[in-house]
Simulated assay, not measured.
Amino acid sequence: MTLTWPEFRRARRRSRQAWVLLAAAALTGVAGLGWFFTVGQFAAVEPPTDGPSEAPVLAAGWMNGVASVRPVPAGSAAALLDTLTVKRPAAQDNYDRSAFGQAWLDVDRNGCDTRNDILRRDLTGAEFTKESGCRVAAGTLREPYTGRQITFSRGAGSSKAVQIDHVVALGDAWQKGAQQLTAGQREDLANDPLNLIAVDGPANQDKSASDAATWLPPNKAFRCHYVARQISVKAAYLLWVAPAEKDAMKRVLASCPGQQTIVAAAQ
């Protein structure tokens, strides 16, 4: 069928409009992917929470601090971040958990292993097993990573609902300076209450050995404390940060410029 000149012009105009719409859709898709792979990967899956915004380090009267490689200086977390060495992570292919000593030692010499110390510190209404002043049997956790309230009950299947997380994961620490520490210093890092928090089991598994560039707590109210705690641990044990990790930490701290370092003072 032969088109008249007016019909041909209308067809060309409709074709141009269609290409404009396709180009706009493509640009929107590219922008959306860019957002997702920067900050959207966190925001897209995070419902608002009203969970805790901080977590204790020590408990007065029965819990002792660990002598880290150097004390954490009091002051601005952002300022301390700027003192940390920035470089790429070392290889992780030679990482072995045993390099950090036996799990849950009694490094503070209070008579109880570290796991039970942290459970006792972080749970509300902690109860102990029969004839034990150490083994925590039950309690309630106002969980900081998700903002949920979790009931802890010791048992073969139930204990894993609450896990003890290394705020600076040991795998991450190994890649960023821990290989240069002594065996005793690595044991201290793995058992230091500054680096340990009782958390939701699935959230802990999701975090794995991630740093701040690849994982942050879904509970946004806790992120400033979490990042400040990571910075404090890394400063205490002479660990470094990767470039992307530092950028992620700075973005979090920009929302709380008054955030202080986390020091091992009794709560």
Results as ranks from 00 to 15, higher is better:
122 D>T: 10
114 T>A: 09
106 D>F: 04
119 L>W: 08
106 D>H: 03
120 R>A: 11
93 D>P: 06
122 D>C: 10
91 A>T: 13
102 Q>N: 04
121 R>N: 06
124 T>P: 06
87 K>A: 14
92 Q>W: 14
118 I>Q: 00
101 G>D: 04
99 A>Y: 07
110 N>W: 09
110 N>G: 13
99 A>Q: 09
101 G>H: 03
117 D>A: 05
121 R>A: 06
104 W>I: 00
88 R>N: 15
123 L>G: 07
86 V>A: 08
117 D>G: 03
120 R>T: 04
115 R>F: 13
125 G>Q: 11
100 F>S: 00
90 A>R: 11
100 F>Q: 00
107 V>P: 01
119 L>R: 13
99 A>D: 09
112 C>L: 02
111 G>K: 09
104 W>F: 05
89 P>F: 02
105 L>T: 11
104 W>V: 01
86 V>T: 12
93 D>Q: 14
105 L>D: 09
121 R>V: 05
109 R>E: 15
103 A>G: 04
116 N>Q: 13
90 A>G: 13
104 W>R: 03
110 N>H: 13
99 A>L: 10
121 R>S: 07
122 D>S: 07
106 D>E: 10
102 Q>C: 00
91 A>S: 15
120 R>H: 13
116 N>F: 05
92 Q>P: 00
87 K>C: 08
112 C>S: 05
98 S>H: 07
96 D>S: 12
118 I>G: 01
112 C>M: 02
96 D>N: 14
94 N>F: 00
97 R>K: 08
96 D>I: 02
89 P>S: 03
92 Q>E: 12
119 L>V: 09
105 L>Y: 04
116 N>E: 11
112 C>H: 02
98 S>K: 10
107 V>M: 10
100 F>I: 00
112 C>V: 03
121 R>K: 10
105 L>G: 10
107 V>Q: 04
106 D>I: 06
106 D>A: 05
101 G>W: 00
117 D>W: 03
86 V>W: 10
101 G>P: 02
94 N>I: 00
